[in-house]
Amino acid sequence: MTSPSGIRIADRMSPRPTKQELEFFQQMGIDAASIWTSLEDSTYQYMVDTRTLLASHGIDLFNIGILDLHCDPTMVLGLDGFSQKVEQYKDYLRNLGRAGIGYTTYAHMANIKMLPYYQTAVGVTRGGIATREFDRELARELPLSHGRQYTADEIWATFTAFIREVMPVAEEAGVRIGLHPDDPPLPTLGGVARIFGHVDGYERALEIANSPNFGLCLCVGSWAEGGADMGRDVYDMIRHFGGQGKLFKIHFRNVDAPMPRFRETLVDDGYIDMYEVLKALQDAGFTGALLPDHVPGDGRNTAYTIGYMRAMRARVVAEAQVHAEQA
């Protein structure tokens, strides 16, 4: 069922979904799916087959991400093989476009897939659920993740080289790229500079890309982790970039507090007002995908989150209609 708001509720699906998983998505009333897979699935055939399968269940395939080409140290640090990865990325974009999948998420962190740099402890959230905890002070003690210090200039250089290569291909293929912020958003972690933990980083990236096909995959959770250090708060980010039509995808998750230490929470149990987030998205005319991203717990907690999102979306849509009638 298409939502009158244009906000499409989505969730991550496995690369080869079973009948049960497809039914589960249908039952939750999910509009769109995002799939993360590996390089062997970057073929046109896989993409079109998967898109067709999902479409036959009424689910739009919003995105197929390739983990080998996302937060990849070779690409972020400019290691040997950089050019080959960029070429693979271009092929991947062409296949996406040809398969009719018009979006992908990109992020530029070298060490996010190394657990200690992502999670410093296993915390507990509501109802005893084990969850990711990150303590900035503990993370300062971590060794170099990639052998030496990498400066922000170096990371900007690889990002610039990458994005200038791929954006023309993305435009030609009809694929939009949404840049995910750094998680956690710290100036440096494990010796590697991070450049997308502040609104200024996004502004600069948009200038460099200089493309209608380049925008944001705004992770509400990551942005909330940074608190006052981000330049704009998450509601302001949505108004600012949403107003420019630069919001492509939203990760709809919450944390208990900004750094120095945060834990991921269930959607309604963090410090961000998710109603205000959705309202800002509706007001900004957002028409992309809204994903719970990683929900603490299991499929039961995902069902809770999707139910919550569907009710909140219904509310902000009704609110917008009331305002339109009053105007």
């Binding site: 309604d268 109603y275 907690n301 069902a303 809770y304 919550y308 569907r310 009710a311």
Partner: peptide, 14 residues
Amino acid sequence: AFAMGYLKAMLTST
């Protein structure tokens, strides 16, 4: 859980 999430959001936002 799906019902609870929906009810929680409706209860609080109304």
